[in-house]
Amino acid sequence: MYPAKFDYYRAASVQEAIQLLQDHEDAKLLAGGHSLIPAMKLRLAQPPAIIDIGRIAELKGVSHDNGSIKIGALTVHADVAASNVLKSNCPLLAEAASNVGDRQVRHKGTIGGNIAHADPASDMPAAILALGGTIHLIGPSGSRQVAAADFFIDLLATDLHEDELLTAIEVPAQSGKTGSCYLKFEHPASGYAVCGAAAVVTLNDDGACAGASLCFNGVTATPHNASAVTDALVGQALDDAAIDKAVDANLSISDPMGDMHASGPYRIELAKTFAKRALKLARDRA
């Protein structure tokens, strides 16, 4: 509970943060601190320098523009969960954020820090993947955008380069007859997702499935996209039996994670159950 020595810098702007990252090798960015600081207290992380970006105002807030919603990296989970823009146009993200940690954590932890850390049991990655989100990054050579599907590489590993800063997450606003939900089976100790299912379902006017997505947190090292299940649903009348059948026939997950509370095979069983429940609830909300 006593971190090793480190130098502390506070960046007033994105440009200053990028410069500081170049100046200090192996430095770590500090946003809400809810992943980094616990690791430092246990001395699992011992960065020589910390660059605090927590007060860069331009990285905070939710904006809606032309069918696209941008969430600044430093927006805290509580603000994502309470955002009227998101609740009206992308309720899945707000619902997932309301599942993160506890009240205190949600008021300090940021969506950007969460995604950059890429804890596979966190609540946000599957939701962003299910929404087809885009990650905005900036570095010394300028800014770039990466699809969520390409961003998560492995356990705690992403496409974010060491000299880059994550600036925003962009998701499309929901359109048509669409419903979504985030359902979570909570780890009894940590509160993280043993299995978190994010589902989006869009219906045609005749009630058949026009499109769907289904992704999981907590089951595999990176969020798992069950596209075979949702592909099988497109064009179908979405009664319970059709959903059950699509999941049973098409949900295939390999290399699950496990721990003393929930083994890998059990997590796959949970995923089957949560896939069905999440798709049905998303359908009902559409």
């Binding site: 780890h187 009894p188 100790a189 940590s190 509160g191 721990d259 003393m260 509370h261």
Partner: peptide, 20 residues
């Protein structure tokens, strides 16, 4: 829970499930 090497697997509140 101890593993076979005598390491406490449930060595933190992230693993030891105190009720909430």
């Amino acid at each position: 829970v101890y593993d076979d090497n005598g390491q406490l697997v449930s060595g933190s509140l992230m693993d030891y499930a105190l009720p909430k």
